[in-house]
Deep mutational scan, measured.
Amino acid sequence: MAAGGDHGSPDSYRSPLASRYASPEMCFVFSDRYKFRTWRQLWLWLAEAEQTLGLPITDEQIQEMKSNLENIDFKMAAEEEKRLRHDVMAHVHTFGHCCPKAAGIIHLGATSCYVGDNTDLIILRNALDLLLPKLARVISRLADFAKERASLPTLGFTHFQPAQLTTVGKRCCLWIQDLCMDLQNLKRVRDDLRFRGVKGTTGTQASFLQLFEGDDHKVEQLDKMVTEKAGFKRAFIITGQTYTRKVDIEVLSVLASLGASVHKICTDIRLLANLKEMEEPFEKQQIGSSAMPYKRNPMRSERCCSLARHLMTLVMDPLQTASVQWFERTLDDSANRRICLAEAFLTADTILNTLQNISEGLVVYPKVIERRIRQELPFMATENIIMAMVKAGGSRQDCHEKIRVLSQQAASVVKQEGGDNDLIERIQVDAYFSPIHSQLDHLLDPSSFTGRASQQVQRFLEEEVYPLLKPYESVMKVKAELCL
């Protein structure tokens, strides 16, 4: 049975990233139509530049190519590739079939990587351009969430054990800070992308030097003109047959890092959902379990974690691919890159769409948070109580021993009897502590235990987050809708 299948058929496997999760716009960027249309555009740009620099290419040939950029006979191309065992030459023939007058000058002087690699770089750039505003929107939604809850005390956790208090907004800023680093890295790697350009079979530009009869300047002009037509500021000066596969490492490393950030955020949300302090959106008709109707599973956060793990592992592909590119190139890269580049971007696209949807509907339960604080705060307040007693004339050592005994009794009630923490009640009825009984409410005010959390939130948002989001103001209103 021949390899390949009808990918629109229910009898043929289709990647869930495309069929179930990723956005239509990201799927289109990695589609065959987008790819092969870009090949034709690159052939047109090459012909236009070659004509401008004096090669015998007519206006009629150029116009014929322009008129057929979208006229792609995919069936013919597939048949040609089956016959020739070469995808680029299959599309040269297919393009030439609908451009008979231009057929002889299509791909003039070029090698397969002229269309293959340059198209990949265009796709990487455009895919990054799709991700950047999506990530900015996630940051914006979380920034709104953090600002609104900047002063809401909550129990902090280290080692997932109760620690000092923080605020809900401050905790959210930990998430935002990681995503801001990801946004900066995505922008950097996007701006650092260079075009492969017009380089020939081993990167020496020998074929173009021959076409222009040894004119170095025209060869350099050709490279520059096509690079500018493709919208790049610069091209690699040095290439082998391909652009260095280190570029793929750079791009997928940034995406993998984004995956790590999203995994951490969504894990926190899942843990908070278990504590009943916070939940992701839950639709009115949504079913959490087929057997347990009360369940409210954090399905979206779980999906993000599941896909983020996949995204983090994909960076190993370009690392290994770059390491086995012998001399000017081997074909070890080809099949692998067809999979890992598309999957990385479709996965990143999915987790950003999902995280935006989550961040637009996060639900906080202040009463649950308050109750958990009441359970733990008495123990945390013991040092403040000791200091207040010393100020009232008591002995630190005597007070410490009193607190120690009462704390152990209260802990026994919590752990052995399943009761509430009654340390404060014990202190309130103990005559030894009568000098500070009137101060206990103040000493137990949760806001006095959150330090500068709310001020940190305000400063972080104003100095770091809002300036970073400013270039994306025009796209901030787009909502994230999930079908599944």
Rank of each mutant, 00 (worst) to 15 (best):
A3R: 15
Y34F: 13
S23G: 15
A411R: 07
L331E: 06
I424G: 09
C98R: 07
G418R: 10
V478I: 06
M299Y: 06
Q177L: 01
R372W: 07
R190F: 02
K276W: 14
R141E: 14
L174P: 01
L17Q: 00
V115P: 10
S140Y: 00
R459P: 10
F145Q: 10
S289Q: 15
R337C: 05
R300E: 00
V390R: 02
S323R: 13
Q320H: 11
Q408H: 10
G259A: 07
K284P: 15
S15P: 11
A480V: 04
K479Q: 15
L319N: 10
Q61I: 00
F379C: 14
D117N: 06
F195R: 03
K187R: 09
C483L: 08
A381V: 14
Y13V: 13
L341Y: 02
K284Q: 10
F433C: 14
K82S: 10
Y243E: 15
L331N: 12
V254G: 13
L258P: 12
A49D: 11
P467R: 11
F236K: 08
H91L: 09
M89D: 03
F212E: 04
H97D: 10
L482N: 08
R270E: 13
G259H: 00
L319C: 10
D332Q: 01
L132N: 11
Q439S: 11
R85T: 05
I249K: 15
T313L: 04
E148Q: 06
G361I: 08
A230D: 03
L252C: 13
L341C: 05
Q210H: 15
K35M: 01
S151P: 06
A206T: 14
C304Q: 00
S474H: 07
L209N: 04
D223T: 09
Q210N: 02
M476Q: 15
S257C: 13
Q408P: 08
A77C: 00
S395P: 03
K233V: 10
V262Y: 00
G418C: 14
A273Y: 05
H442V: 12
R137A: 11
G418H: 14
F74W: 10
L341W: 05
R171T: 01
P471L: 08
W43Q: 13
L183Q: 02
W326V: 05
R296S: 10
I351G: 05
S207F: 14
S261C: 04
M380V: 12
Y243D: 05
K391P: 02
R125T: 13
F379Y: 08
Q409P: 11
K276F: 14
R125E: 00
G96C: 11
R329W: 02
G4E: 14
W175N: 13
R338Y: 09
I176P: 07
F95C: 03
R270S: 01
L406N: 07
Q221V: 06
M387E: 13
R309S: 08
E213C: 08
A260K: 07
D216G: 11
E343M: 03
K402C: 12
F30P: 05
L423C: 14
V219L: 05
E328P: 10
N185A: 12
Q397E: 09
K415G: 10
M312I: 13
F160L: 01
P10S: 12
E279S: 02
E417N: 15
Q416H: 12
R125S: 11
S454L: 08
D87C: 01
R337A: 05
A102D: 01
P366K: 01
K218Y: 13
A381E: 11
I339M: 10
D215M: 15
Q409D: 05
W39Y: 11
A127K: 10
E401R: 05
A127G: 10
F327Y: 07
P10N: 09
E80M: 01
V254C: 14
Y466F: 08
N118R: 01
S253R: 11
Y114D: 03
T450H: 09
L179Q: 09
Y114V: 03
K246Y: 04
A230Y: 00
T119A: 08
H263C: 15
I249E: 10
G96Q: 07
L128V: 04
L406I: 12
I369C: 09
E401L: 05
M476L: 01
K264F: 13
F232S: 01
P10I: 13
